[in-house]
Design a protein around this nucleic acid. Structure first.
Length: 502
RNA sequence: GACCGCUUAGCUCAGCCGGUAGAGCAACUGACUUUUAAUCAGUAGGUCCCGGGUUCGAAUCCCGGAGCGGUCACCA
């Protein structure tokens, strides 16, 4: 391009604030000088964190003859650019430019450098008398000229909405945000490592589901054009994973993946969230309790170093063994009422009413027990506990309890009043499964939007034979909230769902 | 979905009983030069979220709307 110095930026002035205009001007100065403000590559001799380690022994004021090439984002300029704070994802270093040791050509480049630019620098490394590890700049390279100003350096970006909408800015400015999302990554890696060590096979199953299944939830609906068919975005991977166990691809399979529920958004609910589900042949829900406990402990230890984790006003102690208590038993402890004594929904409803928990007439016995449990027991479950033996009414995919036909072999693990895991001995009797589906379909026809659909192919798969299988699922996002002391699920999601602006 | 709250410069925030817009950072001009939120002097920067209304006069009061947050309801 013809590099002619241009005073006037190419963008209409009314579209820019003064800060941007100054940056545009500097960009033009670079172009005019024949400098590419967006070069293709820069060879670093080291990242910043290893440098800090390598030179930790340098005393204040000590100078080396070691030449380094470093790169990162400029976070601060002091003394008209004599001191630059450079940062990369894991470290920081100071750049020092002074006419006594920096060539005039490089000193000149400082005039086109702003806070927020990505730059590279070469020079010898030293520690200043005030103790800052520093590169004495011999050569400057603009690596990416920024055109927008960074948020205020001291307070950072605090506007919660903007932090989620422009997560990149939040990440540039807030160490805490970077750390929370890094911890999430570590948690997922830790889970995967634990599962792989067990010999479980990681698989991927469809997100586009022609038939809703695997959980009671309201779905998103989407459309495939050439098939001219609507699909649901999955609310759970469950039925496909069990098909794989039927197929014998492995004794243990698991999937970590995005799941979608078209329900309210809250500090604990994002419309798309990440679950892990695992299925293990020849095991039952007792084995799953051991499994969930081991896995959670392994990951907590890996992320936190120990098993005690602060959350809000509490300290969660993940050391085991975690108590295992029946849901009905817990309800009885809390209410002095044994709901197993009520053989009809009406009797249970009356007892719930007396507790101030009203339920609509169409709900069944299990749903009433669940409502009482949610109201009276859940808020007390701070430390890890496996709540076992759920009503069959609310568990259409779980195997009937071996000692009580009204219950199923299911448990949910609670921590900090939240359900973090849900597991059962999988129902593998095809006739019983069909009967359960029929009940769901009836509930759906009676207006229960969240009741499950009959999946003929899944029943057919069961008819070929699913081994006795233990299955479990865990919401990764909430688990991450617990381990990062986050009070909002959005903090542990890189790009949480927001209403589009305007 | 209901209730409550917030929204002012690029960012962080003031703005009283209604009298016509302020600071710090960032930017610009200059000074200074081993700083650590550098310092000093000066300059520029506004759809006060949007739309109505009341008023001589609205960032401020009233009504409606939007986005976000908190609480509750449902869900994991």
């Amino acid at each position: 391009m013809s590099a002619k110095p241009s005073k006037a930026p190419e963008v209409a002035p009314q579209d820019m604030n003064a800060v941007r205009a100054a940056k545009e001007r500097k960009l033009h100065e670079l172009l005019a000088a024949g400098v590419d403000p967006y070069p293709h590559v820069f060879k670093r001799s080291s990242r910043l964190a290893p440098l800090a380690e390598k030179y930790a022994h340098l005393k204040d004021g000590e100078v080396t003859t070691d030449e380094v090439a470093v790169a990162g984002r400029i976070m601060a300029l002091r003394n008209n650019g004599m001191f630059i704070d450079l940062r990369d994802p894991n470290g920081k270093i100071q750049l020092f430019s002074h006419k006594d040791n920096t060539p005039e050509s490089e000193m000149k480049k400082l005039e086109t450098v702003d806070i927020g630019d990505i730059v590279g620098a070469k020079g010898i490394i030293r520690r200043t008398p005030r103790g800052e590890l520093t590169v004495n700049v011999k050569e400057f390279t603009m690596l990416s000229k920024s055109l927008l100003p960074l948020p205020e350096k001291y307070h950072g970006l605090t506007d919660i909405e903007q932090r989620y909408r422009q997560r990149y800015l939040d990440l540039i400015m807030n160490e805490e945000s970077r750390n929370v999302l890094r911890t999430r990554s570590k948690i997922v890696t830790g889970i995967r490592k634990h599962m792989d060590a067990l010999g479980a096979l990681e698989v991927e199953t469809p997100i586009l589901h022609p038939i809703l299944g695997g959980a009671s939830a309201k779905p998103f609906v989407t459309h495939h054009n050439t098939l001219d068919t609507n699909f649901y975005l999955r609310v759970a991977p469950e039925l496909f994973l069990k098909r794989l166990v039927i197929g014998g691809i492995a004794d243990s399979v698991y999937e970590i993946g995005r799941t979608f529920r078209n329900e309210g958004i809250s500090p604990k609910h994002n419309p798309e969230f990440t679950m892990i589900e695992g299925y293990h042949a020849y095991m039952d829900y007792n084995d799953m309790m051991d499994h969930v406990e081991n896995l959670v402990q392994a990951v907590v230890k890996e992320v936190h170093g120990g098993l005690k984790v602060p959350y809000g006003d509490y300290e969660i102690d993940f050391s085991g063994p975690w108590p295992r208590k029946g849901m009905l038993e817990l309800v009885t402890e809390a209410t002095k009422i044994d709901f197993l004594h009520f053989d009809t929904a009406d009797k249970a409803r009356k007892a719930a009413d007396d507790l101030g928990i009203s339920t609509p007439p169409e709900v069944n016995w299990g749903q009433i027990v669940e409502a009482v449990f949610a109201e009276q027991v859940e808020p007390t479950l701070i430390q890890p506990i496996h709540v076992t033996d759920y009503p069959m009414d609310i568990s259409p995919l779980a195997k009937t309890h071996r000692s009580n036909p009204r219950l199923v072999e299911r448990f949910e693990t609670f921590v900090n009043t939240w359900e973090i895991a849900n597991a059962f001995s999988e129902l593998n009797d095809p006739k019983e499964q069909r009967r359960r589906f029929d009940l769901q379909v009836a509930a759906r026809e009676a207006g229960d939007e969240e009741a499950q659909m009959l999946d003929e192919d899944y029943v057919a798969a069961l008819e070929y034979g699913l081994p006795p299988t233990g299955g479990w699922g865990m919401g990764i996002d909430r688990f991450c909230m617990l381990l990062t002391n986050s009070s909002n699920i959005r903090d542990v999601i890189c790009f949480p769902t927001l209403k589009p602006k305007k």
